[in-house]
Simulated scan of single mutants.
Amino acid sequence: MTSLRVALLQGPAGGPRPVEGNLAALDDAARRSAAAGARLLVTPELSLTGYALGDDVAAVAETADGPSARAVAGIASRHGVAIVYGHPERDADAVHNSVALVGRDGRTLARYRKTHLYGGYERAHYTPGGRLLVQADLEGVRVGLLVCYDVEFPETVRAHALAGTELLAVPTALMRPYDIVPRTLVPARSWENQLYVAYANRAGREGEFDFAGLSCLAAPDASVPARAGRGEELLVAEVDTGLLAASRERNPYLTDRRPGLYAA
């Protein structure tokens, strides 16, 4: 069985900053994560740019292999920590709200484009992704990717569970007053689908957006091994595939399903 120590970065607070400032903050978080023994760092939605970009979304968007991606690869390899990070991704005329998983050697292992856009702001500036299931194997753990609003749909997490995801990394920019999502819904998703969920939120206010914080690692046995407050914070906790296997044996939701009844 495998144990993977995971760090979750909550923050930063204070609104969008130049990419260089966010890369410096990421470098510091990766250094602290490595010092704590973490092998994976999960950061919030749009962690390289900030969320409240207004009409500057297209101007700051970069291609998947752009300079910011190369900078993150260098941070990952320098500290020996895999990183999940978010940024606006340009693809021809489209801009996607994207996240990527970079391995400890700096190699990109997976890239996901947010499929469920939230509210008028996101729909005005981003194109939804068309591929739901994105996974990669990391340190013996199958990691899946979603972004924020995606996890609030039961179908998305169940699809990951059926595809063998063991740890679902969810970079997030959840706003107040929706505390119910990290407090209730995310642990429920973890329990009902028998997988870990690493939910890394932003903190503080950016323009009109007031982010809820409350990042967490939710486990399949209904526990929450790590929970943040409202401010900037770095959480560290264990993903234990032994616990996962035992929990799935005790709570066989996936094997007891009757798909023939659900088709309609």
Rank of each mutant, 00 (worst) to 15 (best):
R90Y: 01
G74V: 10
G74T: 02
L53F: 06
V57G: 12
G119F: 13
A64V: 13
A64M: 06
V81S: 04
G66E: 13
Y85N: 04
K114A: 09
A110E: 10
V102W: 02
G74F: 00
V72L: 07
Y121H: 02
D93T: 12
S77M: 05
D93K: 06
G130D: 09
D93V: 11
R78T: 14
L133V: 15
Y85V: 13
G80R: 01
R123C: 10
T108C: 04
Y126F: 15
K114G: 04
L109C: 10
G54K: 12
A73Q: 12
A73Y: 09
L101V: 02
G119Y: 08
L109F: 05
L53I: 09
A110C: 01
A73S: 15
A58Q: 09
N97P: 00
G106C: 05
T127I: 03
D91M: 07
V102H: 08
S77R: 15
R78F: 05
Y121P: 02
E62R: 10
L53A: 02
T63Q: 11
T115K: 05
Y112R: 10
R131C: 10
A59H: 13
L53Y: 09
A94G: 08
R104N: 05
A73G: 13
G86P: 11
G129N: 09
A76D: 05
V60W: 07
I75C: 00
G120H: 06
H125V: 01
V84E: 06
R131D: 14
R113A: 12
Y85R: 03
R111N: 09
R123P: 07
R70I: 05
V72S: 06
V60Q: 05
V95Y: 01
I83H: 06
T127D: 03
D93N: 12
G129R: 08
